[in-house]
C-alpha cells in the first residue's frame, strides 16, 4: 500500500508541471528560448532535453544540500550549481549534435538565467526531499519540452512545409516564410496563448462561468 501511494504522490507532482503549470503556456516564464529556438520542432526536443537535465540536476543536488546551504547566500550557491550543470550540457550537446547546438547558440548557456530553473529550485527543491524534487523537475522539464515542440511544430509546418524534417505539404505549395522569422515567433506564441485561453474558459466549472454574468441577473435567477 505504501508503495502505491508513493508513486501516486510522484505522479501528482510530475503532472503538475506537465499539464497544469506548463511553462511558458500556463506560467509565462522562460519565454526567450521559447521564441528564439522554435524555428523547427527538433530544436524544441534538444532544448527541452537540456533544460530537463539542468532542472533535474539542480533540483536533486540542492534538495540534498538543503540543510547545509546557509539561507543568506543561497541564491549565489544555486546559481553556481546551475551554471556548472549548464556548462556540462553545453559541452555534451556541442559534442553530440553540433549542427543543432549551433542553431541553439547562446540560448544553451543562457539556461543559467532561465526563470524556470531558479524558480523551481527556490520554490520547491529548497523545501522538499530529493525524490519529490526529481519528480517536480521531470514534470516541469518535460512540460517545457512539449510546449517548445508544439510551437516549433506550428512554425516549422507553416514556415517550411516540413515537420521534424519530413515533407508535410506537397513540394510546390508556397510556405509562409514569416513564421521562420522573428515576427512569426511572437504571433505564433500570441495565437497559442489566446487559443489556450478560450479552451480554458470553455472548460471552466459552471460556478466560474456564472461569475461573469452581471450580479443583477444572478440574483434574479436565485
Amino acid at each position: 500500500m505504501a508503495q502505491y501511494s508513493f508513486w501516486r504522490e510522484k505522479w501528482r507532482l510530475i503532472s503538475e508541471g506537465l499539464f497544469r503549470d506548463t511553462p511558458p503556456f500556463f506560467l509565462v516564464i522562460g519565454l526567450c528560448p521559447a521564441l528564439a529556438v522554435t524555428t523547427a520542432a527538433i530544436n524544441g526536443v534538444i532544448m527541452g532535453i537540456a533544460v530537463t537535465f539542468v532542472l533535474m540536476g539542480a533540483e536533486v543536488i540542492i534538495s540534498l544540500l538543503r540543510k547545509w546551504i546557509p539561507r543568506t547566500i543561497r541564491i549565489p550557491v544555486y546559481v553556481i550549481i546551475i551554471a556548472v550543470l549548464v556548462t556540462v550540457i553545453d559541452l555534451v550537446l556541442a559534442g553530440t549534435v553540433p549542427a543543432i547546438h549551433r542553431v541553439l547558440g547562446i540560448f544553451v548557456p543562457l539556461i543559467v538565467v532561465n526563470c524556470i530553473i531558479l524558480g523551481r529550485v527556490e520554490a520547491f527543491a529548497a523545501h522538499n526531499t530529493p525524490a519529490n524534487a526529481a519528480a517536480d523537475a521531470l514534470g516541469y522539464g518535460l512540460g517545457y519540452m512539449w510546449a517548445l515542440v508544439a510551437i516549433g511544430s506550428i512554425r516549422e509546418i507553416l514556415g517550411n512545409g516540413t515537420w521534424f524534417g519530413l515533407q508535410i505539404f506537397p513540394e510546390g505549395l508556397p510556405t509562409v516564410d514569416l513564421f521562420k522569422l522573428a515576427p512569426g515567433a511572437f504571433v505564433t506564441m500570441a495565437a497559442v496563448l489566446a487559443a489556450l485561453n478560450v479552451i480554458r474558459r470553455r472548460r471552466a466549472p459552471t460556478s466560474e462561468k456564472n461569475a461573469a454574468i452581471p450580479v443583477v441577473s444572478r440574483n434574479a435567477a436565485a
Binding site: V28, F186, V187, M189, A190, A191, L193, A194, A195, N197, V198, R201
Partner: peptide
Amino acid sequence: PQAFQGTAISLL
C-alpha cells in the same frame, strides 16, 4: 477580445 487579454495581446 477576451481571449487575447493579458500576455497574448502584448505578444501580438
